[in-house]
Amino acid sequence: MKRETIRSPRAGRPGIAWALPAVLFFFLFAAAPMGIVGYLSFTDWDGLSDPSWTGLDNWSRLWNDDGMRNAIWLSLLLTALSWLTQTPVVLLLGVWAAGRQRNRAVLSAIFFLPLLASSVALALLWRTIFDPNLGLAADIADWFDLDNADLLGSSTGAFAAILFVSGWQFAPFHMLIYQGGARQIPQSLYDAASIDGAGTVRQFFHVTLPQLRNTIVTSTVLMVVGALTYFDVVLILTRGGPGDATAIVPYLMYETGFRAFDLGYASAVAAALVIVATGTSLLLVRLTGFNRMRSTREGM
């Protein structure tokens, strides 16, 4: 806004009314609901009758609820493991894709494909593949003579499946971010490193990685927020199961709200989700100064 304070021609400035429709619309369908969630979290509501005020009941229940603790733990675990497993892969592939190898364009285009499908479509595909009797899982168990192919039936297996599918789905997106970041690195830095006698590996650690610092932050924030709000695939692939092995916070919220119809308590879970999600992203933003970059999209 700095520029505009210099001189101002008479005509051509829109009034504040121009902002109203969007603000009102956004307020009604996004901002006000946040307030309503807060209110509902203090009520008992089954969706049929009117909500009745129950004070802090839901919140004290939430605090002591093993299911909720489990869900928060799983969400944080999913977030951390997503980051740990995806980042090295997409960093490497993104940097590679930024280069000029033969076939690079074709391969990048193929890598990109999972990003074109909706989560629902992908979850259905993976559900077919993981079917222990009819899917690829059955074949793999046959080849390696495993005694069962029950990947989605074991707690760790189902969790690993969610972790893998989310990675498979979003890796291309993060690859693109790193590809974009790597392309911004000035060639002169590499030339200088070459003159110093640095090999590929040293160049990667001493030039590429430090230069991608902002890109790593961008990708990390997006990964964290994505993992904390992962839902569609969990619903279709595991339904939070077996037991509650994959019942992460958004799924727990859905199940409590739209399966058990305990909408008051589900609102408390939702409010907790907002607190955890915004808290985490604000923390990351503070720690890394991401907000300053955001406005200029530097590093993307």
């Binding site: 709000t229 939702a270 907002v274």
Partner: peptide, 11 residues
Amino acid sequence: AIPSQAVIIPI
């Protein structure tokens, strides 16, 4: 910062 899942009930 608002995840859409969080406000599905009020919506």
